[in-house]
Design a protein around this nucleic acid. Structure first.
Lengths: 201, 201
DNA sequence: CTTTGCGTTAACTATTTGGTTAAACCACTT
DNA sequence: AAGTGGTTTAACCAAATAGTTAACGCAAAG
């Protein structure tokens, strides 16, 4: 009765790996079975269809992608520290899930409607909270009069994009794996520094 | 003898549309044929296989994705103006090819090896030129001592990412198509302003 | 008018791939 | 030892999909 858990877990783990790398359309049930070292029929025994299995993985991924870093934004610390903490934490998470962004964004672009339903469970939009925060800081004259939407996208872009463009960037810059790792390590402080440098008075 | 050109062109145009939207794995030959309003056999008459047709589109896309904006970087204008021109021009191009980034980056991530060959034709790496330029500016004390790699990725990220994360961002911010269009219009100046604000002394 | 050859189509084939089934397996109960 | 029920497998099926073929259309050449 614990084979169950074991196998189910192995399937989910393998499915995550394959879906992340190949996407819904590119993933093959056989590949997932092979990766898990089991018979393909098992996939359908535990999860009725490819679509259902995919949804499991996608929802997990979605939950991870939207950081529960809301804590950082709500914390009783100065605005600049919030930015520093957010960028550091988000980059660290992405470092451990490097394929997450391209996977999620790809599938969201593929089925925006389906995503719309799942997404709005997450009622406390990170963006809206951030925008509120920025407006407050602008009004109190603590930072330059920046537009929250742009600042938000700028921050998110600079955190996420390096992982999406990794192979392309590595080739055009000549970096190897180790150097890229170090590059991301630097960004954990550099991104916040860059942002703050631009908005501080 | 000009039906030839006409049909071939229609196929390429339809293929571009479908591949952009669905990617290599998700695209169906039948869809491309339907989109072009022709028989599926024609696809194989003009382009032997799906793979060959895909390569045509992919190489075109790659060429577009790497801007020939080298002109902007080589121009005899102040560094800050180069940044302004680059961001403006690149955003304008992306605005007319909104699906280009996700398509290209996706396929590059899928087959980095194949990409490696095709890519290095483009020997004059935009990144290397940019890095050189930044180093010069830093040395002459015109800007703060920033790391070229970070500055480059920051700039590229802020230009490209909005198009990759568009549906997600639109939902979490509540923007509609028109507002998003205006948002991008603003970014044509805002991104450069943001960057310059951070690196100017 | 007939011939020639490229362009085009409908129908077909081969392969891939998601999904099913019936039997075997295995731990546990009686 | 036989039975029971969840788990696993090999073999199979059906749908989707890339690719092929043989015949047709038709404009230009003869």
């Amino acid at each position: 009765m614990e084979k169950n858990d074991n196998t189910q877990e192995r399937i989910l783990s393998s499915a995550r790996k394959v879906f992340m790398l190949k996407g819904m359309a590119g993933a093959r049930m056989q590949d997932i079975a092979d990766e898990a070292g089991i018979n393909k029929a098992m996939l359908h025994y535990y999860f009725r269809s490819k679509e259902i299995l995919f949804e499991m993985i996608f929802e997990q991924s979605l939950a991870q992608f939207f950081p529960r870093i809301t804590g950082i934004i709500d914390a009783e610390i100065p605005f600049f520290e919030k930015i520093e903490n957010f960028c550091g934490a988000y980059l660290a998470m992405l470092q451990q899930n490097p394929y997450l962004p391209l996977f999620v964004l790809n599938e969201v672009n593929q089925q925006p409607d389906y995503f719309k339903e799942k997404f709005w469970k997450n009622k406390d939009s990170l963006f809206l909270k951030f925008a509120e925060l920025v407006d407050t800081e602008v009004t109190s004259g603590n930072i330059k009069p920046v537009k929250p939407a742009h600042l938000f996208i700028n921050m998110i872009s600079m955190c996420i994009f390096p992982f999406i463009g990794k192979p392309m960037f590595m080739m055009s810059s000549g970096m190897d794996e180790l150097q890229f790792r170090y590059f991301i390590e630097q960004r954990k402080t550099e991104v916040a520094k860059f942002i703050i440098g631009s908005i501080k008075k």
